[in-house]
Amino acid sequence: MQAKWKAALIWLVLAVAGFYLINELIVVGVINAFIENMLVTIGINIILATGLNLIIGFSGQFSLGHAGFMAIGAYATAIITQQISNTLGFYLSLGVGMVIAMLVAVVIGIPTLRLRGDYLAIATMGAAEIIRVVINNLKITNGAAGMYNIPALANWPTVYVFVCLTTLMIVNFARSRAGRAIQAIREDEIAAEAVGINPTKWKLAAFVMGAATAAIGGSLHAVYIQTIAPSDFGIMQSISLLIIVVLGGVGSITGTFVAAIVLGVLDTALQQFGALRMVIYALALILIMVFKPSGLLGRYEVSIKGLLERKGGHHGTTDSHEVE
């Protein structure tokens, strides 16, 4: 069997096994409601942060406005499921949220993506704040009070499946024609243009794709938490997603998973410290960055295909990044 099929099969088996493992642990009571909640939060953060990593790590565009797209997804779901409060309504709202987020990403991206580095960061942050202020002042979104009693239309299996789907989507996107083009732009925009890559077009593609996944994360957040308010989607939310990306390693999807899990567990473990929680969290953040400046995993990526090929002892056309 070809390595690529073997690798795909192993990933599928792992995903299914993970699902059953969590399911069993819930049945036997090892995972209680508290831990389940933690796992779901981690899952939603993975969905949001992998999309951001596509923008920051792969296309090299420093976006600080991810929470804005998350808000669009969350509010689309909250508003639509008020009218159609069943699973169908949820999936409809998910699609609507994605489409709106992508359109808004195009509108924001075309003028701002020509900016570089920190200028882009501050412009996207501003754009996300504008989205938030608008939501804060609209009637349909119930203003600053936010929306509550959103029907609980997602449980952990929903989130689990979406984690798998969005990750698959982003990893496959990053390892294809599009992915090579956006990484070329990240490495050297002038050289990329000189070999026929239109930077505006491809940066926008990555930005829009990231926005779409952020909307998915927002929709899931809305139906899982069941209460949302504009203040949930401020600069601090964008920053906490950025923290996951950088802590895991910019450009490493595996790293994003690891960082989301580490931070999720840390957050839960620190609950018992009460007011001291955020102080410890902040210290942990500073220490990890000072001692591990390129993030927990750097650019490392787990690759089953790579493992198979190394074991088989033949050099193949591996598209995996090994340890840098």
Binding site: R177, R180, Q183, A184, E187, A191, V195, I197
Partner: peptide, 21 residues
């Protein structure tokens, strides 16, 4: 001006972006 952190293969393939869809 190479795409330094991309493999040589990816450097070449990135340059083929407009040649296929």
């Amino acid at each position: 001006r190479l795409f330094s952190k991309l493999s040589v293969r990816d450097n070449l393939q990135a340059a083929m972006t407009h040649r296929y869809h």
